[in-house]
Design a protein around this nucleic acid. Structure first.
Lengths: 148, 148
DNA sequence: ATACCTGCAAATGTTTTGCGACTAA
DNA sequence: TTAGTCGCAAAACATTTGCAGGTAT
């Protein structure tokens, strides 16, 4: 896989902010983009460590923060309390439908809900920047298993 | 202030589960209900410690968990990463409009949004249990101060 | 009496930071 | 050359747990 577009976003951001590119940053970016959605720092660290044994977890944390700052990903906190990171580029805004039993996450989008949020914000004189809508329920598979 | 209703909920829950009432639990309940909304364990601990110097923070955590279990409050995690607790009794469901600059939280409710969520869940064959909608923006005061 | 509860301190788990050596620009 | 970066270990936090003594039922 090649992630030229994200790489460009990152290097542009790095140059604009007088930072420096490095093999570690690119490797972390690559592993992050190749990974499943909603990955934790520890999970990503585990993946990268296989190829690049000497890397430190501090570098993973530092780079994930950099990726967020540059707009490549965003932080996602669900109710389990662990911080996860979600790729943003080429990934339209969406909300989450989460199975409270098996943890499955479905990404959903509803234009009307988005509009209603803008309306609410306007009513309260807020300039809406972003939002998070996480819906918790029981998915059909878990429902069948009668676990709930 | 008296919080007889919440006290009853708690003592009922305690009796049903063969637990024991204690001065600490009641003091923590009282301080929690008297406090501002969306309090953290540390903040609550600070408040209680003024009156009841010997209390331990472990007891605060244990009691907040008990309050959640008994339905008096619920956990609320915003993007700042700290766990907050929100009173539920006499407090209908609502969503949050949060100022990304000053941290102000406005509680909002929109029936249509609630309905649309049920519809989305249904479409994906989920039984919706609950949800969290947090909208982040800039409030009118901060907007005026041109901080954003 | 018997569980449960408490405060304390230690343990845990996650994320951040200080540091000396290293490296990109 | 000179910042920024790295890996490491230590520190910083938030939260949980083990324990020995105390307390409600």
């Amino acid at each position: 896989m090649s992630f030229e577009e994200e790489k460009k976003i990152l290097t542009d951001y790095i140059q604009r902010n007088n930072l420096k590119i490095s093999g570690q940053k690119l490797k972390i970016l690559d592993s992050f983009l190749s990974s499943k959605k909603h990955i934790t720092a520890e999970e990503l660290y585990g993946i990268i460590k296989k190829k690049h044994k000497s890397i430190g977890i501090a570098t993973v944390y530092r780079t994930l923060k950099l990726l967020c700052d540059s707009g490549i990903c965003r932080i996602l906190k669900l109710d389990d309390g662990v911080t996860r990171y979600e790729a943003l580029y080429g990934h339209e805004h969406h909300d989450h439908l989460i199975c409270a039993n098996c943890g499955k996450v479905v990404e959903v989008y509803d234009k009307k809900i988005e509009e209603l949020q803008l309306k609410i914000a306007k009513k309260h004189h807020f300039i809406l920047k972003n939002h998070r809508l996480d819906m918790y329920g029981i998915c059909s598979e878990c429902k069948k298993k009668r676990i709930s």
